[in-house]
């Protein structure tokens, strides 16, 4: 890239500037979420060396490739199990899964619910633009009832997932939802989510003006942001059962869950730590009775 005079991007140090320009469309909300994430990292003071980003496939799947930390662009739907292995092998890492709705809760839905159930030590950011955008605007398990997509030209006839409810019922210790309009609240939630031990989850509703908004005649990116401003209702602590998103209906935002429960790592260490220390004690007492090596030959 040629160097140009002028102001630098304030979060440049968190980005791979040698990969700019990015692939996202004008008016897309993913870049906004990345900006919030960069500021969240700055404000949280997380050790950048120990931060790893794992994405799946899709528009949001490209986030990993634009962030300057250790970053992994894995396979469709499998960011969470990759991240689970990464974290288990190196518990010092702060592992953030950053992916889209189709990736995380359609093809990756099974991994999502199990990671929440285990309370795996992961922070999951789900950018929900209500459709599969990379492939041209097909419907997803998050597309609101009656909305139009290329694979549902007459309107969706399946009920979508209510992601905060799904995450909460599976055991997530932190659940929040914001739109791309709520940049300050989102940044704060990202910091809180990364600070939790266990499975924390933030859903971020974003515009997809090229596909979802255009096909459903909802205006451009700016119009959509105005819509988010006027139609979001902030209800912290709200019962997630009522956080469904209907087509062009109010979007309930806020922090819904913030509880403490031992994480997968903590549970594993507690359980196996006991086993190992008990076994070492057994071994020591056995060795006092028998010459070393005798038991080993028994298989």
């Amino acid at each position: 890239m040629t160097t140009k005079a002028g102001p630098k991007n304030p979060v440049e140090r968190y980005l791979r500037m040698d990969r700019m320009p990015h692939i996202w469309c004008p008016g897309c909300g993913i870049g906004t979420t990345v900006n919030c994430f960069a500021r969240a990292i700055e404000q949280s003071g997380v050790d950048l060396k120990k931060l790893a980003i794992v994405s799946g496939i899709g528009c949001t799947g490209r986030v990993a490739g634009y962030l300057s930390f250790d970053s992994f662009h894995t396979t469709h739907g499998r960011a969470i199990p990759f991240a689970t292995g990464l974290k288990m092998a190196n518990p010092e890492l702060k592992v953030v899964v950053y992916s889209g709705d189709g990736d995380l809760v359609a093809i990756g839905g099974n991994h999502f619910i199990h990671a929440a159930r285990r309370n795996a030590d992961l922070t999951v950011f789900c950018v929900n633009n209500f459709n599969y955008a990379m492939t041209g605007g097909q419907i997803a398990p998050t597309t609101p009832l009656d909305a139009v997509g290329t694979t549902s030209p007459y309107g969706v006839c399946e009920r979508p997932f209510n992601l905060p409810f799904l995450a909460k019922s599976c055991g997530a210790v932190y659940v929040a939802r914001w739109t791309a309009y709520h940049v300050r609240q989102l940044t704060k939630s990202m910091i809180e989510a990364m600070d939790k031990r266990g499975f924390s989850f933030v859903e971020i509703i974003t515009p997809c003006p090229t596909l979802y908004e255009r096909r459903n005649r909802l205006g451009d990116g700016l119009a959509r942001m105005e819509w988010f401003r006027d139609n979001s209702v902030i209800r912290h602590g709200s019962d997630t059962r009522y956080a469904d998103i209907g087509f062009q209906e109010k979007i309930i935002c806020g922090k819904f869950v913030d509880v403490d429960r031992p994480s997968l790592l903590e549970m594993t260490q507690a359980k196996l730590g006991d086993v190992v220390s008990h076994r070492r004690w057994q071994e020591m007492s056995r060795r006092q009775r028998r010459p070393l090596g005798e038991e080993a030959t028994k298989g």
């Binding site: 199990p81 990464l86 099974n110 199990h114």
Partner: peptide, 23 residues
């Protein structure tokens, strides 16, 4: 570390995450 994953798809990529973690 052993983990019983939710399916073989998850197992086959969890190991790759672990390798990048140094395992």
């Amino acid at each position: 570390n052993f983990i019983q994953m939710e399916d073989e798809i998850a197992s086959s990529i969890a190991i790759q995450g672990a390798v990048w973690g140094g395992a």
